[in-house]
Design a protein around this nucleic acid. Structure first.
Lengths: 292, 292
DNA sequence: GTCAGCATATCGGAAAATGATATGATCAAC
DNA sequence: GTTGATCATATCATTTTCCGATATGCTGAC
């Protein structure tokens, strides 16, 4: 077994430039540093650094091993961090990223009971329709709706996100109801600028349908409002329209020959496996709400 | 410092169900297992497992710590693996994934000198236009062309991939040369099924241009052939067309008001930081070739 | 109630890490 | 060229830790 203290000497020695300097930084005797490095090399059966009295230089093996040593030490620190009280329980700060629509419709209503259930937890929601770099923005969790992907190693699937075409009753009264996919050309379709096509399922196949659009916006909320106001037909997640549907402000449309492709809701965490409890709890809360 | 041997006892004990079983698996005395676990708990200052005589159960802290312990042990194994002779030098098997076009045009010509320079290395190229799950398919390296992304943490940028519109001289003689973006509507544009739009740069802004396409294919090679045969205008990476341009079979088009967005070439590795030498060498070879 | 399996306490001995000093080697400055 | 400072490491006594074997208290099954 590799001794992490030995690995630490290696890393320090390389960055500090000499074993003596490393020993000073680590607060140990120079010989201890020397012995630890020797022990590591003995354990691995390879010479890691070439030592001339004045300068250290990594051998090829050392070059290959060093990043792993660094990773091990980081892993050790991470393991300890996982035991800090604020990481252990549901306390501290939880930063969640989600799209604007998802934040409003799903996360918003879910927060009061969640916060009540975990009094020591603070939640910060980063609502943005742009992709987020988890690590860079210090986000603990990002929730995205998107096409069904298989690389479940990177993201955890929280549930389905069925989608439909929606329009307002006024619009339908004026323009009629489309029956088939082909009928859509005679209608005003409202699209997201970044998504100029709609994906339909036709007996198992995905059809990439380019949409004739007179109005497009980069915000799905904008589309949503325009749709309610009768501007045309929008393609939205069901959870984004349920309230208006029950209120009679929007009507879901079904075509005879095609259904809108169902998307998935995905939870993305910086490291998919080492998920702290607070994140796990929040993900569970979202998942529960999605199943309602 | 966490002792990895201690962590190993924890992991074994949890999977085996008892310290005694773990000790048998690890080939150590039962008490040694007990002591190591105790030492780990002392080191961390937390109780990790609740021990009743009959069954072990993880405490909350243990629950949080266990995945980190597993990660540490995996890291240790990975660190050792990095020193195996075949991982150290440029030897063994290197599995590379790339698109069909990229494999043919860039990787293919690069391979003979590369293989000659590293005689102990075997290379397996996985040419596919689908995305690949690196870990699942045992791929050491995937090379993808795509939009310029900033999340450099996941992928390493190998170079630019400038792109242009191309057409055959015969097609241009028959149909004329488009001068402006708007002229494209009068032309036959050849698109990839998965990419039904072309991205242009117009004074700093990206324009998502939906393309009127009478012929689309899921293979860029197919498009390429059709384009040479005079079927219309295709949007391709320059490296995919140079040979035909020098041979006079294709002509690059420039529009007055828009240029095709330049893409990047990205190298994606299973773990972005712990890159084995053989992968590093290959990436360097690709990068060098791209700069020619 | 008996017994088997488990976790762990105890303790002598072995092994390993440590501390202080010493040695040879290298580079810089005079 | 010589001196001195710095460095890596050897040596050895000491302390600390680790290990092995036996022993003890406990729990659940038969």
């Amino acid at each position: 077994m590799i001794n992490l203290a030995d690995a630490e000497v290696l890393v320090e020695a390389v960055t500090a430039g000499s074993l003596a300097a490393a020993s000073r930084r680590l607060g140990i005797a120079p010989m201890v540093a020397s012995r630890r490095l020797a022990a590591l090399e003995a354990e691995l059966g390879v010479r890691l650094v070439h030592r001339t009295t004045r300068a250290l230089s990594l051998t090829t093996a050392g070059e290959a091993f060093l990043p792993h040593a660094r990773a091990l030490l980081e892993g050790e620190a991470g393991a300890r961090a996982a035991l800090r009280p604020e990481a252990l329980g549901a306390s501290g700060l939880l930063r969640v990223s989600a799209s604007n629509a998802f934040a409003r419709k799903i996360i918003g209503p879910l927060l009061p009971p969640f916060l009540a259930a975990h009094p020591a937890l603070k939640v910060e929601v980063l609502a943005t329709d742009h992709r987020v770099d988890l690590a860079a923005d210090g986000v603990d969790l990002a929730i995205r709706a998107g096409r069904v992907l298989d690389n479940s190693q990177m993201a955890k699937r929280l549930g389905d996100s069925p989608r439909h075409l929606y329009a307002s009753p006024a619009y339908l009264a004026a323009r009629g109801q489309p029956r088939r996919l082909a009928d859509l050309v005679d209608h005003d379709c409202l699209t997201q600028t970044s998504l100029p096509y709609w994906d339909f399922m036709i007996d198992g196949h995905v059809l990439h349908h380019r949409v004739q659009s007179r109005l497009s916006a980069n915000s799905i909320d904008m589309i949503h409002e325009a749709c309610v106001a009768g501007a045309g037909i929008a393609c939205m997640a069901d959870w984004n329209a349920t309230r208006e549907v029950t209120g009679g402000m929007l009507v879901p449309l079904t075509l005879e020959d095609a259904v809108v492709e169902t998307w998935g809701i995905w939870a993305i965490t910086p490291s998919p496996r080492l998920v702290p409890p607070k994140v796990r709890l929040f993900v569970a809360a979202v998942q529960e709400r999605l199943q309602q």
